[in-house]
Design a protein around this nucleic acid. Structure first.
Length: 599
RNA sequence: GCGCCCUUAGCUCAACCGGAUAGAGCACUCGCCUUCUAAGCGAGCGGUUGCAGGUUCGAGUCCUGCAGGGCGCGCCA
């Protein structure tokens, strides 16, 4: 059974078609004027324009055809020709019951499931994640969940930046600092020592903190000192040839980084199906370049080999994709192109979503065009879902008080500390075990961070204000958790008092009170919010829905006693509360937010 | 220089193919806990949607110009 908006659209579209007008004009939307109607159709206005008739006459004719529909309490013409629809309590009762009985809580699946791959834009090996990675993780995770819930087959790929010159630099820097490691690397490279065993023990002393400290130094030195740079390049080339010592040390870099990344991602409730990286497509690059050449796409230009991607009608001339540099090495975009080819072979995705900073828009446009030219994807299958930057309260990219980049792990810990503090202040979670309390504080912190991000449309930059996010009042993640937990509390109590137990709690819903009407209409809007979030890659539509649902429930909670009501009413309200909880938890889950049992 | 994005209430942000009276939260004022979790609910205050034109029955939304802010523009990733 579809949502009310779709049901009504169908009816009004049929009415338009019956009058010889285009059916699609009958599209129904939630009313802008809840004081006047539940739903509205603006089609008469558009129809009037097309056929040159008075919109109110058309609206009246449509209304005439709708009269007698038992789902509609009233059909009214208002203003210049709006058709206002008010639903009968019976229709709302039916819909509320359907949602309560539906495992999907009123949400539909897509007609044509696709194979979708979400690329989170790749943290780099050797660098801990910082706040800049927060949005990609949060938005990417939500999009992944939304697409999966709609029925697509979705894989998320963390996609490491784990290859290239930077790795050569780091290997050299670590060897300079640790003679024991340098010696072990040389022994492995020379084949004196077989891979594994002793060498690995020396490598185990390398930590992510070391790499994080050494990388900027090495990068600076590589710029200033040509000998140093040349050595790093030689190491890079040898690494790419799988020289055992370098490769083993590189593997250690990758491992320590992944452990740290997994810790941060886990704390955020983010996970991946794939931990692929740039290194995984290294072997594809040479054959790919040969193939591109054979297809006649490569052009020699200023010593480099490029693919031109300009098209007629471009407002500006996009630079070409630089496939092979004048020094013969593969570039950033080359790796991206090889990754597209790899994914085509491995998964044949119908859609690849790159959840990456908006600033890379031109880069992706260039790579995508090259991929289309090469036949590695069909036009439109590659999609850059860009997002704005997260700024500090000064409007500039977020920095710590000392002016440095805030590590993601530190940010999460700061938010957790604030959550603990607030829980204590509110006197919540007092008689809990320390483990449960920590679990709740973690969930509150994640909810605060994620909801603060996802309530904004991804494309715009927003101000990160820890004090505001952690104030936990109003339109915040913790508010949503609080509402969900409050419902759980009522349901628990009902069960404890004997009239909530399974069957009894699921008493048939009857919608009567205004707050019950509003709550049901809000529950019904889940499908619309989900569809919008899906179509526009816009989790904020779902965040908004979750918030409205919480508010509608809170109103219902304040105005309609549940446990004190007459048995029949009580059963109805318990079922309505249960459906609300289920949908709210689902919506939050799609945002990547988990709800504790109590708080 | 060229191109992209942004500018909405004091602050932070919404607004579904162009629709009625542009919505939330915070802040501020007031009311509501002997009843299911008051991190709550209700009411109030707050707007020339940066500016100037245009298209339209109708524009925050589309078009043109201007101002302010951010970002990107071939051998880093």
């Amino acid at each position: 059974m579809s949502d009310l908006k779709s049901q009504l659209s169908e009816a009004v579209e049929a009415a338009f078609a019956g009058l010889g007008l285009p059916a699609e004009l009958g599209r129904v939307t939630v009313s802008d004027r809840p004081d006047l109607a539940d739903f509205q159709s603006n089609g008469a206005l558009a129809a009037a324009k097309r056929v040159g008739k008075n919109p109110r006459e058309i609206a009246a004719a449509v209304a005439e055809r709708l009269s007698g529909d038992p789902r509609l309490a009233t059909v009214e013409i208002a203003g210049p020709g709006f058709i206002n629809l008010k639903l009968s309590d019976a229709a709302l009762t039916d819909r509320a019951r359907a949602i309560a009985a539906d495992p999907r809580l009123g949400a539909e699946t897509v007609a044509q499931p696709r194979r979708v791959l979400v690329d989170y834009g790749g943290p780099n090996v050797a660098k801990p994640m910082h706040v800049g990675h927060l949005r990609a993780s949060i938005i990417g995770e939500s999009i992944k969940r939304i697409y999966r819930f709609r029925g697509d087959a979705v894989k998320g790929d963390a996609h490491f930046g784990d290859w290239g010159y930077q790795m050569g630099l780091l290997i050299g820097a670590v060897m300079d600092e640790h003679p024991a490691i340098a010696a072990a690397v040389e022994r492995l490279n020379a084949g004196i020592e077989p891979p594994g065993a002793a060498g690995a023990a020396a490598f185990n002393t390398v930590t992510l903190a070391d790499l994080d400290r050494l990388y900027p130094e090495a990068a600076a030195k590589g710029k200033a000192d040509t000998d140093y740079r040349d050595r790093a390049r030689r190491i890079t080339a040898a690494l790419q040839d799988r020289k055992p010592g370098y490769h083993a040390l590189w593997q250690r870099f990758r491992d320590v980084t992944q452990v740290a990344l997994e810790r941060d991602f886990h704390a955020l409730g983010v996970d991946f199906d794939l931990w692929k990286g740039e290194s995984d497509v290294e072997d594809l690059i040479d054959p790919m370049v040969a193939e591109l050449d054979a297809k006649g796409l490569l052009v020699d230009d200023q010593g480099a080999r490029i693919i031109r991607v300009v098209r007629d009608g471009d407002k500006k001339e996009l630079p070409p994709l630089l496939v092979v540099s004048s020094e013969g090495s593969a570039m950033y975009g080359t790796t991206d192109l090889a990754t597209i080819l790899d994914r085509k072979r491995e998964f044949a995705p119908n859609l690849v979503i790159y959840c990456v900073d908006q600033r890379q828009a031109d880069h992706f446009e260039i790579v995508f065009r090259a991929a289309y030219l090469a036949g590695y994807a069909l036009e439109g299958e590659l999609n850059h879902v860009g997002f704005g930057t997260m700024n500090g309260t000064d409007g500039k990219p977020f920095k710590t008080r000392e002016g440095g980049v805030l590590k993601l792990n530190d940010m999460i810990e700061m938010t957790r500390a604030k959550a603990r503090e607030r829980l204590h202040e509110a006197g919540l979670g007092e008689n809990l075990t320390p483990e449960d309390f920590e679990d709740i504080a973690g969930k509150v912190a994640v909810a605060a961070l994620k909801f603060a991000d996802l309530q904004n449309f991804r494309g715009t930059s927003y101000v990160f204000d820890l004090d505001r996010f952690t104030s936990f009042e109003g339109k915040t993640g913790p508010y949503l958790l609080y509402q969900a937990v409050r419902i759980k509390s009522v349901l628990r109590r009902a069960a404890a008092e004997g009239f909530g137990a399974e069957g009894a709690a699921a008493g048939p819903i009857t919608v009567a009170e205004p707050a019950e009407r509003e709550l049901t209409l809000t529950l019904d809007a889940f499908e619309t919010a989900l569809a919008e979030a899906y179509d526009r890659y816009a989790p904020n539509a779902l965040a908004e829905h979750a918030y409205r649902l919480s508010q509608a429930f809170s109103k219902f909670y304040a105005g309609c006693p549940i446990l004190q009501a007459e048995p029949q009413v009580r059963a109805s309200r318990l079922a309505l509360a249960g459906a609300t909880l289920a949908q709210l938890e689902r919506a939050l889950d799609l945002l990547g937010i988990a709800v504790p049992e109590r708080m």
